[in-house]
Lab assay of single mutants.
Amino acid sequence: SDFTIRIGDRTLHLKNVSEEILKILEELLRRGIDFEELRKIVEELIK
């Protein structure tokens, strides 16, 4: 499924993301992860 994360004025667009990855990202966001850290993790996950 497609997913968009907005943190402040920044946006991260994800396409064809599995439910498992979404759950991980949601947990990281709940813990207050930094946007740049989140972006790096996402890039690793979707390689």
Rank of each mutant, 00 (worst) to 15 (best):
E27S: 08
R31E: 10
V17I: 10
S18F: 01
D34M: 07
E20C: 02
S18N: 10
I7R: 00
I21R: 07
L28E: 14
E26F: 06
E43Y: 08
D34G: 15
K23P: 12
K15F: 08
R39M: 13
R6S: 15
R6F: 10
L25A: 11
F35G: 06
G8E: 03
I46M: 14
R6I: 15
E36D: 13
I21V: 15
K40W: 08
S1D: 13
G32N: 12
S18I: 01
K23S: 13
K23C: 09
E19C: 11
D9V: 03
L45G: 05
E27Q: 08
L22F: 08
K15L: 05
T11L: 09
E19Y: 09
F35S: 06
E44Q: 11
L14Y: 04
G8D: 04
S1E: 13
K40C: 10
R30E: 12
T4K: 04
L28H: 15
I33F: 06
F35K: 04
H13F: 05
R30D: 11
L22C: 07
E36C: 06
E27I: 09
K47Q: 13
D34Y: 03
I46W: 05
E36A: 05
I33H: 10
V17W: 01
L22E: 09
R39I: 15
T11C: 07
D2A: 01
E44N: 11
E36H: 07
F35T: 06
E37D: 14
R31P: 05
K23V: 14
R6G: 07
T11A: 04
F3S: 03
K23H: 13
G8M: 01
V42M: 08
G8I: 00
R6M: 15
K15Y: 12
I7S: 02
I21H: 15
L25R: 00
L12P: 00
I41M: 09
S18C: 01
I46F: 15
E44K: 07
I46E: 14
L29H: 04
D34N: 10
G8N: 04
S1C: 09
K40T: 13
L28A: 10
N16W: 02
I21W: 10
V42S: 11
I5Q: 00
E27W: 02
E36T: 06
I24T: 14
L45N: 06
S1G: 14
R6A: 15
E20M: 02
L38R: 00
N16S: 04
D9F: 03
E19F: 07
L22N: 04
E43Q: 08
D2G: 05
R31D: 09
V42C: 07
N16T: 02
L28C: 10
L38H: 01
D2K: 00
H13P: 02
R6K: 15
E37S: 12
G32T: 06
S18R: 02
N16M: 03
L12E: 00
F35P: 08
E27F: 04
I41Q: 10
E37V: 07
E19K: 11
D9W: 03
R30Y: 05
I46Q: 15
L45M: 12
G8R: 01
L12H: 01
F35H: 04
E44G: 10
G32Y: 02
L45T: 07
T11E: 13
K40P: 09
E43T: 09
N16E: 05
N16H: 06
E19P: 15
E20S: 06
S1Q: 14
I21Q: 15
R30V: 11
E19T: 14
I21T: 15
T11R: 02
L29W: 03
E26H: 10
L28R: 05
L12F: 11
L25P: 00
R10N: 15
R10E: 14
I21G: 10
E26V: 07
I33L: 12
F35C: 05
E43R: 07
R30A: 13
I41H: 09
K40A: 13
S18A: 02
I33N: 08
L45A: 09
E37A: 07
L38A: 02
E37K: 05
T11K: 03
S1T: 12
R6E: 15
